[in-house]
Amino acid sequence: NQASVVANQLIPIQTALTLVMMRSEVVTPVGIPAEDIPRLVSMQVNRAVPLGTTLMPDMVKGYA
C-alpha cells in the first residue's frame, strides 16, 4: 500500500508547508504520495487542513 501525505498539525489557510507539518501514512482514500513531501515544502495550502487530514492535490497551490 502506498503512503500518502497527512497533516501532522492544523495547517492554517495560506500557510507555506514545512517538513514538520507533514507525515506519511497509509490511508484511504489515497492522497498526495509521500515521496512528494520534498516537493511540497514551501508550497501553500489553499484551505485550512485539520490534524490527521490527508493532503489531496487540490489542497496545495501549484501542486496539481
Rank of each mutant, 00 (worst) to 15 (best):
28 T>K: 06
33 P>G: 05
25 E>L: 07
24 S>C: 07
29 P>R: 04
1 N>H: 12
46 N>A: 12
38 P>G: 12
39 R>C: 15
28 T>M: 09
5 V>K: 01
24 S>Q: 14
2 Q>P: 15
58 D>V: 08
6 V>G: 02
51 L>C: 12
41 V>T: 06
34 A>G: 09
42 S>D: 12
53 T>N: 10
3 A>E: 14
7 A>E: 01
4 S>W: 03
2 Q>E: 14
59 M>I: 06
13 I>C: 15
27 V>N: 02
48 A>Q: 13
25 E>V: 08
17 L>R: 00
43 M>V: 05
36 D>V: 08
9 Q>S: 10
50 P>E: 13
54 T>K: 04
35 E>Y: 12
36 D>H: 14
29 P>W: 04
40 L>E: 00
33 P>S: 09
57 P>E: 07
29 P>H: 05
22 M>H: 00
16 A>T: 13
5 V>A: 11
13 I>E: 14
28 T>Q: 11
47 R>A: 10
29 P>Y: 04
28 T>F: 11
64 A>H: 15
53 T>L: 11
12 P>G: 07
18 T>L: 08
8 N>K: 08
31 G>N: 00
45 V>S: 06
16 A>N: 09
62 G>L: 06
11 I>K: 01
26 V>A: 09
41 V>H: 00
17 L>W: 03
26 V>R: 05
10 L>M: 15
47 R>E: 08
33 P>W: 10
39 R>P: 02
63 Y>S: 04
12 P>M: 07
38 P>Y: 10
26 V>P: 06
15 T>Q: 08
36 D>C: 14
64 A>C: 15
31 G>F: 03
27 V>Q: 01
26 V>G: 04
21 M>P: 03
44 Q>G: 03
23 R>Y: 05
58 D>L: 07
20 V>H: 13
30 V>P: 11
54 T>A: 06
37 I>T: 06
23 R>L: 05
43 M>A: 07
33 P>Q: 07
29 P>D: 06
30 V>S: 13
55 L>Y: 02
9 Q>T: 13
61 K>L: 13
31 G>S: 01
17 L>D: 04
56 M>P: 02
6 V>S: 01
27 V>Y: 01
47 R>H: 10
27 V>D: 02
22 M>P: 00
16 A>P: 13
41 V>I: 12
57 P>C: 09
2 Q>F: 14
49 V>A: 04
18 T>F: 04
39 R>W: 11
46 N>R: 09
24 S>V: 09
43 M>Y: 09
39 R>L: 13
7 A>T: 10
56 M>R: 07
59 M>N: 06
56 M>I: 07
19 L>Q: 09
38 P>S: 14
60 V>L: 09
35 E>V: 12
8 N>D: 09
32 I>W: 03
64 A>K: 13
60 V>C: 01
51 L>W: 10
16 A>Y: 12
44 Q>L: 13
38 P>Q: 14
42 S>C: 15
36 D>I: 07
4 S>P: 01
7 A>F: 00
38 P>T: 13
37 I>G: 03
41 V>A: 05
13 I>M: 15
48 A>D: 15
53 T>D: 13
8 N>P: 01
41 V>R: 05
44 Q>E: 15
31 G>W: 04
18 T>M: 06
27 V>F: 03
56 M>A: 06
4 S>R: 02
46 N>V: 11
26 V>Q: 09
19 L>H: 15
37 I>C: 05
21 M>G: 02
40 L>N: 00
13 I>S: 13
54 T>P: 06
7 A>V: 06
10 L>W: 13
11 I>D: 02
15 T>I: 06
6 V>D: 00
1 N>R: 04
38 P>L: 13
62 G>W: 09
58 D>I: 09
27 V>P: 01
14 Q>A: 15
28 T>E: 15
35 E>W: 08
7 A>L: 03
22 M>K: 00
64 A>V: 10
15 T>L: 05
11 I>R: 01
56 M>T: 13
52 G>L: 04
40 L>T: 02
58 D>F: 12
6 V>Y: 00
37 I>V: 07
38 P>H: 15
53 T>P: 01
46 N>G: 08
15 T>W: 04
20 V>K: 11
57 P>R: 06
9 Q>A: 08
34 A>S: 14
34 A>T: 07
32 I>S: 01
2 Q>G: 14
35 E>Q: 11
41 V>N: 02
63 Y>N: 03
25 E>N: 09
11 I>A: 00
26 V>F: 09
30 V>G: 08
3 A>Y: 11
38 P>E: 11
6 V>P: 01
54 T>N: 03
2 Q>N: 11
39 R>N: 10
36 D>T: 08
4 S>A: 03
39 R>M: 13
28 T>A: 12
7 A>D: 01
51 L>I: 10
47 R>N: 09
58 D>Q: 12
44 Q>T: 14
28 T>P: 02
29 P>E: 06
16 A>E: 10
20 V>T: 15
55 L>F: 09
36 D>R: 09
59 M>K: 03
52 G>C: 04
5 V>P: 00
32 I>P: 00
36 D>E: 12
29 P>A: 03
34 A>I: 07
53 T>Q: 12
61 K>T: 14
60 V>W: 02
19 L>P: 09
48 A>R: 11
42 S>H: 10
15 T>D: 04
37 I>R: 06
61 K>Y: 14
39 R>E: 07
4 S>E: 01
30 V>E: 14
41 V>M: 07
45 V>Q: 00
46 N>S: 11
29 P>M: 04
